[in-house]
Amino acid sequence: MKQAFRRAFTLSLPVMAGYLSLGIAYGILMEDYGYNFIWSGLVSLFVYGGSIQFVALNFLKGGFSLLTIAIMTLLVNSRHIFYGLSLFNAYRPMGKKKPYMIYALSDETFSLLCSYKDQPGLDNNACMFFICLIDHFWWTLGGVLGGLVGSLITFDTTGLDFAMTALFVVIFTEQWLEAKTHIPAIVGILSAIVCLNVFGSDNFLLPTLIVAVCILFLAKTPISVKLREEEGK
């Protein structure tokens, strides 16, 4: 158990870096909107969704109905449906741990779990559970710290939210370096750019994912061939 925790801690170190800097950025921005560290800490603990928390800052300016907010949240987070599909089989043997591990399936936890490699002689299911728990902890701690720091020092935070973009670019780069085929990544980029221009910047996320999935099905033969070639090496 101890070993599983230690491995989970090591694996989640990059997420700690990202989550502390992003979480602190979030806490500071919340502070700018007049919400102290208790708010940012609790929101980070219970909502636990990086991008939607940043999007939600706009809601705090007022003028949004709860229905609009619900639809926006479902759209922004619709990608989580695809995370669940990707980890569906990996989550099967999780037993009592499963509900929490579904609840805590953030972008970064997903990226760690979908690249998780079993280690012999280790309780790997416990290790994956600890990854969820530790990531969740870092994100919440970041929110609290950001709120506290934000109330102590005041400096121009314009552009601090770029930390989120930077984190996604880092994960994208990591996946690119390790990918057996670049077709899925390229499909994602092109679908997103086309849909951004067709549907506009507010509504393109869901159409993009649907278009991308359709193309992935159409390109099933070349992708499967590539995957098999790489596995044969």
Binding site: L85, D107, F110, I171, P184, V187, S201, L205, L209, V213
Partner: peptide, 30 residues
């Protein structure tokens, strides 16, 4: 507790790369 339909089993391993690419573009949408 059922098995995923076969088409979704194909998507599982390749979808993460697509999703991250989309998220990067999403961050740069403005």
């Amino acid at each position: 507790n059922r098995d995923l339909p076969l088409p979704l089993q194909y998507l599982g391993p390749i979808l993460p790369a697509t999703i991250m690419a989309v998220l990067v573009v999403y961050c740069l949408k403005s």
